[in-house]
Every structure is written in C-alpha cells, then in structure tokens.
Design a protein around this nucleic acid. Structure first.
Lengths: 160, 160
DNA sequence: CCAAACAGTCTCTATTTTAGACCAACGGTC
DNA sequence: GACCGTTGGTCTAAAATAGAGACTGTTTGG
C-alpha cells in the first residue's frame, strides 16, 4: 500500500499547502494533520475525545437551544416547550436528560398535583452558556456575510 | 384561555425564579423569556434567526469537525475522509457543499486526471474556527467535570 | 491486466425524529 | 357533573434523515 502522503503528489498547477515548510520538506501543518488523522482512526479514541463529546451534544441540535433558553432563568418543562415550539416532547425529554446527566443542568421536582418540575443551569451549564453566547454573537455578526455568500453561491450554481 | 403566566402559580414550597424582580412584581428574566418565546412562535422568525442558522449547522454534527480538521491547512476530499473515518462520503459531500455555500470554505478543482479537489477555510471560516477552538478548549477543560457528573448520575439512576 | 486512487453520485436500508394518543389528578366553566 | 385544559412525561407509528456500499471514468503502479 503506497500510503500516499498528501501534498507531495499534488497537481503541478496549484500550491496546495500554503503553510510553512519544515527543513525536511514536509509541511508543518501536514504533520499536525497526520497526528489528528491518526488520533481519529481508533473508535476508542473518537469516543473518549472531549471535542467529539461536546460536538455530539451540539449535534443534538436542541441541546444548545435549550441551554440558551435556560439562560433567562429556571424554566418548567412546558415553558421550554412553548419557548421552543418546534421541538417534540420526546426530544425535549431526551435532551434534558442528557444535559442533566452531564451536569449542565439540574432538575427539581415539586411534589404538587399536578406535578411541577423545573430545570436550571448548574455552574458548569453557565460556563457552557458562555461559549454558546459567544457563538451567538458570532452568528449575529456573521449573518449578513453568510447570507451574501449564500446568495452568490445560489446564483452561480443552478438556481433550481 | 387563561394564558397562565409562568412563575405566578408556582408550587409554594420552592422559589422557582431566583432572578431580580421588577417593581410590578414580574421577573425581569421572565420578561426576556417571554420575548424569546414570542420570537420563536413564528416559523418565519425561526428560519431567519442567526442563532438557529448557526446551531442548525453545528447540528450537522460533521460540519464542526470538518472545520476543525481544515484548521491544519487545505485538505483534499479523500484526506478529509481519512481524517474523519466515521463520516460517510454522502455526508462529507453534503457538509462541504453547505459550508461552501455559506462562504466558510472554498473549493478548488485542479483539472488533472484523476481530478484533484481541495478545500480550505475562507476568512469567514477562520473566524468560525476561532469560535470552535474556544469551544474545544472548554470541552477539554470541562471533560473531567462532565465525566464525574455522568458517573454520579448513572450511579444514582439505575445502572442498567 | 487487475488494483487502487481520485471525487463524487445513486440507491437501499437502518436509524433518528416527529406527531400525536395516552396517563392520572386537579381547577375552572357551563 | 361533564368537559376542558393543565401538569410532566411515555409510547407507538409514520416521516425524515443518515449510513453502507456499488458505480462512474480515467490513470498510474505492479
């Protein structure tokens, strides 16, 4: 197996790795890349990778929205449902459980009839919220640029 | 329809809104929450919400990983595949297209045989990368805490 | 001449998500 | 007092989505 090292056998008409090159001729970024690639080879490594873990949670799609919603204060199940109308009960329950399991929020049950339950961020949850808020700011700042890029792309590639 | 205002008719045994209270008696956070809730009622609003847009992209699950991988420099399709072994070609293609459409990365085709294509972050992509890296740092920092919380949760609630 | 590599596309299946019914007890209305 | 909505969920069936793998056509390597 040739195990081709990317970047060496590249088309002659374009510089592909525009990164600093080490004395031996291989790109520095390439080496980092190889390390990263190697790391991701084993399922075990992938599973215990913190980045993956966080990303998989964001991949819940609802998780981030829930945390953002809870930034306004403690919230009951049904209030969350109203705040995020397009989440199904099932997913809301599931996402809340995951978040609780990971210690990002705490669940409090009031033994009344009908039962009342509320969710609030833990300190860990608050710190995650900080990250999310930074992301939200980036999103708002970049929104116009993204919309523009999107319009341009759609115009270039078929408009159907 | 009573349109119950959350927070007023709460169980007597627990303070549910531990947030500053405005002169008129309603929680400040509650008002923000109502605004947020109102915003999310209309599908149109949800669709054009920048936060949603970014979150939906992270919800791709692979998008973030791709951007993080491209932080090491330009990368060809197959190298990305090797770097992220558990992504399917289908999703990789799809995610790359979305990212390109939103102007986070650029795609360059070298008309050789066999064809070569490489992807690299645009300035906008780099700025998104910054956010992602901050998130990655948070993830690594918080990993132990999360693992602990998880272990505790699993111990408390049935260990099956 | 068979195999692999390149960057995808296409189809078929497996997983995930959603929509909606249901629970049991209570408050308000008619 | 029948009827409705409210509480926080769980459960099932249907819809959307993701994944696995075959296929494209050309070129180099063995």
């Amino acid at each position: 197996m040739p195990r081709l090292s990317e970047g060496n056998r590249l088309p002659a008409d374009g510089v592909v790795m525009a990164t600093p090159v080490a004395p031996n001729g291989t790109s520095v970024a390439l080496k980092e890349m190889e390390r990263w690639t190697a790391l991701n080879q084993s399922p075990a490594n992938r599973q215990q990778c913190p980045v993956r873990e966080v990303l998989d949670h964001l991949g819940d799609k609802w998780t981030a929205l829930i945390v953002l919603t809870l930034s306004h204060g403690a919230c009951r199940f049904s209030a969350l449902q109203r705040a995020i109308p397009d989440i199904s009960k099932r997913m809301l329950t599931q996402s809340l459980r995951n978040l609780e399991r990971d210690g990002l929020l705490s669940r409090r049950v009031y033994p009344t009839k009908p039962p009342a339950v509320d969710y609030r961020l833990t300190p860990l949850g608050e710190s995650f919220l900080g990250q999310l808020q930074a992301l939200a700011v980036w999103a708002e700042d970049s929104h116009p640029t993204i919309r523009a890029a999107r319009a341009q792309f759609d115009a270039a590639n078929g408009e159907g």
